[in-house]
Every structure is written in structure tokens, then in C-alpha cells.
Design a protein around this nucleic acid. Structure first.
Lengths: 126, 126
DNA sequence: CGTCATTCAATGACAAGGAATATGATTCGG
DNA sequence: CCGAATCATATTCCTTGTCATTGAATGACG
């Protein structure tokens, strides 16, 4: 029952996979080499940086990435250990945490973002 | 320096990420539930099934998936343990291995493939 | 042939992610 | 108010993946 359409679907899927992995790997290696953080760490940093005004809860992050809640928690652990973000308990609801970039975090983010965008452009926009 | 183009690139990237992860997760769960194998295992099985005629070397697999050589090796371990494929040393070059589906492997593959294609269609072909 | 570099695959140590569960905070029905 | 249910986050345990290394086989070449 291997219809032509099936084969096309599989082709399409493999092509998505390949371009996704190639791009992710390229970015990951570059960030690792130049800034000593992985892609997932950068992406969280990027999300935190986006929400400068509206303080950023962990919960919100979970909704904006395909990462699991526990993965997000661990990524934030590493970012915190690296001194790039801080977790601040928030008065309204003490279950929640607000994340904030440290100065080091802001600096690193803005430098890494340049690299990130450049690699995206190279890999997506051909 | 957050240009409009940058924002578009990031948007595009996140959209790719999300659709990739959603699709992969959906397929993975379904295969796990119904056939007790993960997505990576199925994909290797699928590659082996494709090369019925030309016996399939490990090396060849490595070139057709974004997986690492060692990851492929371990996935094949599991498939072998599950009785779905066999590794046959090959006479021409005794470093190489030829993979073959067992009967169980062939059966499981053809059933799982239906599910796989259906989910691809659902997730990619909208 | 004998040596040296290269190739294919497996393995062990380690890092990262997911599922399930724990913990502490909050809300809500009565 | 009290207890149950729910929520936000952390943590534990297990699986899987990567990197580096190893061992065996091959090939190039003097």
C-alpha cells in the first residue's frame, strides 16, 4: 500500500527533519563555541529578553517553547548558575517566579542574538 | 538592532520548531502505544525496509538520518533485542554489517507504517 | 609483505530531556 | 475558616543521545 502520496509525505518529513537538525546543530555549535551556552539556553534567554516589560513567569516560558516544564526548569537552573538570569519570587502569587536578565545576561544575549539571527538567515532564508 | 527581518526569522524558526516537535511527539506517542517502539526506531526500520534489494549497511543508515553513528548503533541494538532486525556480518568487508528485517520486523513495520503515514498526513498535509 | 592511516562499528562515561511525583501556595465549596 | 482540589515549580529516576575512544579490518604504498 505504499502510495505515491505516502512516499511524498515521507520525503517531505525527512526534508523537514534534516533542515531542522542541520540548522539547530549549526546554531548550537556556534553558541556553544563562542558563548558557552546551548541552543535551548539561548532560546529561553531570548524569551526572557523579549518580555522586558511584562515580568516573565516560568509558566509563560513553558507555553512558548516545545520544551517540557521540567526541561525549562533545568535550563533556567543552568542559566541561573551561569549568572545570566535571576529567579525572583513574586508577591502576588508565591507559587510563581519572575525571571530577569542580569547585566551579564543582557550583554551575552545581545551578542549571541546577532549570531543566532545570522545563522537562521543563512539556514532558513538561504 | 532588532530589525523586522530578524523578528520574521525568529518567528519562522519557532514555527518550524513547533510543527516539528508537535508532529514528532504525536507519532512517537502513537507508535509507542500501539507497537511499543519509538519514532527513531521506526525510522531506522523504515530505512531498512526501503532497501530490501540492496542489502543495508549501518553506514548507509547513518547517511540517511540526522542521527549520530553511535545513536544508530544503539537504536539497532534495541531493534535487534526486540527481534525486529538482525545484523549479519558481510563477507566482502568484515567491518561492515548488513541489516535485515526479521519476519516480525516486516510485519510490525508494515502495520506501523500505516499509522506513521496517517499521522504525517494529518500533521503536515494539514 | 610490513607499516601507517583510514574506515566501520561498538562501547563507556557523561549530559540532557521526559514522565511521574513531590512540595508548597492558592482557590473554592460549603 | 477547613479540607479538597488545583496550580506553579522543583526534583527524582530512567531513557536516550553525544563525544571520545577502542578494536578490528582494509587499503595505500614503499
Amino acid at each position: 500500500m505504499a502510495t505515491t502520496q505516502d512516499r511524498q509525505l515521507v520525503e517531505q518529513w525527512r526534508s523537514i527533519q534534516n533542515s531542522y537538525f542541520r540548522t539547530a546543530a549549526a546554531i548550537d555549535r556556534a553558541l556553544e563555541a563562542k558563548f558557552d551556552i546551548g541552543l535551548n539556553e539561548f532560546e529561553i534567554l531570548d524569551l526572557v529578553a523579549e518580555s522586558v516589560d511584562s515580568a516573565c513567569r516560568m509558566k509563560a516560558l513553558g507555553e512558548r517553547t516545545p520544551m517540557t516544564q521540567s526541561a525549562v526548569s533545568k535550563v533556567v537552573d543552568r542559566l541561573e548558575k551561569a549568572g545570566l538570569v535571576t529567579r525572583a519570587t513574586c508577591a502576588d502569587d508565591r507559587r510563581s517566579l519572575y525571571l530577569q536578565l542580569t547585566d551579564a545576561g543582557r550583554t551575552l544575549h545581545s551578542e549571541a542574538a546577532v549570531e543566532h539571527r545570522a545563522l537562521l538567515k543563512e539556514n532558513l532564508g538561504e
